[in-house]
């Protein structure tokens, strides 16, 4: 099996959907702990060294959500103290903390998702469902940098003539409106060329076949099957075993039946899958380098 970034987009998509599914619907401390741990490890694996992890943001988010819930929700039996004659309960604080872990975990999963699923991969996935819209999106993506560049060039050209740069707001607004209007003309002009170029290269012929550089390897099949089995198992066991936690009026932890434990094992394996892959890769390299 290969490093997670090299997996086929569809395998990746499936993985990220399944891994956030369970923690989104079950507020269970063990599942959430696995989700958070898995997401953090996954982020460490996929982010480039030197890239900011944004850890402070997550910590602030965590405490923010934890503290806001007891201020809004006053359910629960264990009253700790009163603010404005409203009770702050232990249950509400714990509920806040658990939901905070859920939210932070999912946000970190999404962050890994955005690092792994580059525009190209997303485009490929949309392309397999909606080929035409995907091509439009593709040309649009091509146009954005062009548009920005041209806009900057026009502004500079106008500035070097001393136009629309005075400290006069109406003048500036008028300038921006004119720049925007000429940019529209410019885009239309250029899109005629682009359309010609598409036509000249046979766009519109029947039986168009979208091409991509992505190949579906055996490793993708293996990964997909494992992830799907783990996810299906975890969800089934959670449903059959009645995995649920109650917070109000007092906290009832889920009972540790064999089914629930199986559910934990399956989900834990699913959440840690990227980290395990990475670990395997590192060990392999270690042996490779020592062999060299």
């Amino acid at each position: 099996m290969t490093d997670i970034k090299r997996l086929h987009p569809s395998a990746l998509m499936l993985y990220f959907i399944t891994v956030i599914l369970l923690p989104m619907f079950v507020l269970d401390p063990v599942i959430l702990a696995f989700s958070l741990a898995g997401s953090v490890l996954c982020l460490i694996c996929v982010k480039k060294s030197g890239e900011k992890s944004g850890i402070w943001l997550y910590i602030i988010l965590f405490f923010g959500i934890t503290l806001i819930n007891p201020l809004i929700s006053h359910h629960g039996e264990t009253e700790l103290f009163f603010i404005n004659n409203k009770p702050v309960t232990l249950e509400a604080i714990i509920y806040g903390a658990v939901s905070a872990i859920m939210i932070v975990g999912i946000i970190i999963w999404f962050r890994s998702f955005s690092l792994v699923m580059t525009g190209e991969k997303l485009l490929y996935l949309t392309g397999s469902v909606l080929p035409k819209s995907s091509l439009i999106l593709c040309t649009a993506l091509r146009y954005i940098p062009l548009f920005k560049q041209q806009s900057a060039k026009i502004r500079n050209a106008q500035k070097a003539m001393g136009l629309y740069s005075a400290d006069n707001i109406t003048d500036k607004l008028k300038g921006s409106a004119r720049v925007f209007s000429i940019l529209t003309t410019w885009s239309l002009e250029n899109s005629i060329d682009t359309a010609d170029s598409m036509k000249a290269r046979g766009y519109g012929l029947k039986h168009r076949k979208p091409f991509s550089l992505f190949k579906y390897h055996v490793s993708d099949v293996v990964f997909t099957v494992i992830a799907a089995m783990l996810a299906a198992g975890a969800i089934t066991f959670a449903a059959v075993g009645g995995l649920s936690m109650e917070f109000y009026p007092n906290i009832v932890l889920p009972t540790a039946s064999p089914l629930i434990i199986l559910c934990y094992v399956f989900y834990g394996a699913l959440a840690l899958l990227p980290a395990l892959l990475e670990l395997k890769e590192r060990i392999k390299w270690k042996y490779l380098t020592s062999a060299i």
Partner: peptide, 13 residues
């Protein structure tokens, strides 16, 4: 057919 402007005849990103 190849046209004049390098930029505008490129279709994809």
């Amino acid at each position: 057919f190849v046209m004049q402007k390098p930029e505008t005849q490129i279709v994809t990103d």
